[in-house]
């Protein structure tokens, strides 16, 4: 839900000395990302993706560093980052399991798929397994309605799932 605001006003920001936005990332940004756009702000989403790709989540300190780099205020970058469901502002599991729950998937038995994942991982949607391997999430339409029910595990889409095949996929995800 894009419009649910997250607690940022009173939160304490955990900091470390080493910057999250590394020189390599900046070099890549200058080489590949910034020249694409007439404004610096437009690089916000591509660079948030870069940061999340490197650390698997987006720490608040990284948002501040990104804002300084793009000559924006931290609140502008935070505003963008909190809008998009794919950006995690808290640590998450190594693999994020996104189970589609939109209409075609529900018609084709999504509830059983989700149940299978919950039983297998022992967590509810929104939670992470204690070993930090999986985070289970609901997601709206993955755009694969013809092969419903479907789910994304990490970046890989799994289609025409049954509870058994999904449990097997989770077993085999290393």
């Amino acid at each position: 839900m894009a419009w649910i605001t997250k607690n940022s006003g009173s939160a304490t920001v955990a900091r470390r000395d080493e910057p999250y936005l590394t020189d390599e990332m900046k070099a890549k940004a200058e080489r590949e990302i910034l020249p694409r756009f007439p404004t610096k702000q437009a690089a916000t989403i591509p660079l948030l993706h870069e940061i999340q790709h490197a650390y698997n989540w987006i720490p608040m300190q990284a948002i501040e560093e990104l804002a300084a780099y793009l000559e924006l205020s931290a609140s502008q970058v935070l505003d963008t980052a909190t809008f998009y469901e794919e950006f995690f502002l808290e640590p998450r599991g190594e693999y994020t399991v996104w189970v589609c729950r939109s209409i075609s998937c529900e018609l084709m038995g999504q509830d059983k798929i989700l149940r299978a994942a919950q039983d297998k991982l022992g967590i509810e949607p929104g939670q992470t397994t204690p070993d930090g391997k999986f985070t289970l999430m609901h997601v709206e339409c993955l755009g694969s309605c013809g092969t419903a029910p479907c789910a994304l595990v990490g970046e890989k889409l799994h289609e025409c799932l049954t509870p058994e095949s999904f449990a097997k996929i989770l077993d085999e995800t290393k």
């Binding site: 989403i45 469901e85 709206e140």
Partner: peptide, 12 residues
């Protein structure tokens, strides 16, 4: 030029 711009999960 043609570039790919990746969204981040928002129907709107």
């Amino acid at each position: 030029n043609c570039y790919i711009h990746r969204g981040a999960g928002a129907y709107i």
